[in-house]
């Protein structure tokens, strides 16, 4: 553990194509990690998190992956290295994918949003204090989840976990889940496409390591694709945090509703910051279909959204985030109440 804030020595590898980046990852194996914006990896390295600090860094920031493309039929395509701020300010995203635009606007702080990237917000490490401070937890070479035993108020799941209970910290992944996005992953044998829920399964054991995403060490996300929004759909985002900037979600909600007049014909509702991956609130989705948005149905959906929550009772406990998750759902749906 370093008590210093400087970055340990690392070897810099640069690539001009995703295939070349993947080939470098293959060549250097576990020794190398990808850096795109760097706000997460460099921070982790300054903290000296033992099992997350690479000896080599493959810098992909100069790859031609900084783009946002919108097509009414194909939908939205966002390159992996596109800054979060670009997502937050893109007019097409604001118009057709309000939930994503709003989620991006609540990430961290303005300077971070300028540097942090689309793919990075999805695959960043958890903000669990134990990992960030290099405690020897499951994700850091150990065999215990300190979060379960210790201070689990802010960054541990209220919907259970397996080995690790640390929540996925991102905001935009919650919106991507709600929008049924899929991602393109470049591997040694070319590209594959998978739903974002497959990329973020919650807990994955990859190459013997406990992780929160399913990427092999020599795979990288190159693009996020969001299908064209259904006709007559509306969407919204609400993030509950103690401090209104520079803070992760204690609970967030992304809602996408397809309306038939004032009746909801389809609902997609995903909670963030409360589970090891963005948490689809299926019971609340079913409940909403066929209803219209009233104070009563909003409260009903909020209650349904946290059905089955199993907040931790060990350590500090974190049941208050059930309340906050309910609040986030209520706020997000209220924003859609015309």
């Amino acid at each position: 553990m370093s008590s210093n804030n400087e970055v340990p020595k690392f070897g810099l590898l640069t690539a001009s194509t995703p295939a070349e980046a993947v080939s470098l990852l293959t060549q250097y194996g576990d020794q190398a990690r990808i850096v795109s914006g760097g706000t997460d990896l460099l921070y982790t390295m300054k903290n000296g998190v033992t099992y997350k600090t690479p000896n080599y860094v493959v810098d992909i920031s100069s790859l031609p992956l900084n783009y946002i493309k919108y097509d009414a039929t194909d939908g939205l395509r966002i390159g992996a290295t596109t800054p979060i701020s670009a997502i937050a300010t893109d007019p097409n995203i604001a118009q057709y994918y309000a939930v994503l635009s709003q989620a991006a606007a609540t990430v961290a702080a303005p300077q971070i949003r300028n540097q942090a990237t689309a793919a990075g917000d999805i695959i960043q490490d958890t903000w669990c204090w134990y990992l960030r401070n290099n405690y020897p937890c499951w994700q850091n070479g150990g065999n215990v989840c300190y979060g379960v035993l210790g201070d689990n108020r802010y960054y541990q799941s209220i919907f259970g976990g397996r080995l690790t209970f640390a929540v996925n910290p991102g905001d935009t992944p919650v919106a991507y889940f709600a929008l049924n996005a899929d991602v393109t992953v470049q591997g040694p044998n070319g590209t594959t496409n998978m739903p974002i829920s497959q990329l973020l399964p919650g807990v994955a054991i990859v190459g013997g390591k406990v992780k929160e995403n399913s990427l092999q060490h020599n795979e990288m996300v190159t693009e996020i694709h969001v299908p064209a929004p259904p006709a007559n759909s509306v969407s919204s985002w609400y993030k509950v945090r103690a401090r209104q900037s520079f803070d992760f979600a204690l609970a967030s909600a992304a809602a996408v509703l397809t309306m038939n007049g004032s009746t909801i014909s389809a609902a997609s509702l995903v909670l963030g910051g409360v589970d090891v991956a963005p948490h689809r609130a299926t019971a609340a989705e079913s409940y909403l279909v066929g209803q219209s948005l009233t104070t009563s149905t909003i409260q009903g959906a909020a209650a349904k959204a946290v059905e089955g929550a199993t907040p931790l009772t060990t350590g500090t406990g974190n049941s208050f985030r059930v309340f906050l998750a309910q609040g986030a759902v209520s706020k997000a749906l209220t924003l859609l109440q015309s």
């Binding site: 204090w129 215990v144 300190y146 210790g150």
Partner: peptide, 20 residues
């Protein structure tokens, strides 16, 4: 950290160390 009695791993912080 309020966790108690987790086995100490040399070279890493132990139970009761800093969090924030």
């Amino acid at each position: 950290d309020p966790s108690q009695n987790v086995t100490v791993t040399p070279g890493f912080p132990s139970s009761g160390s800093w969090l924030n």
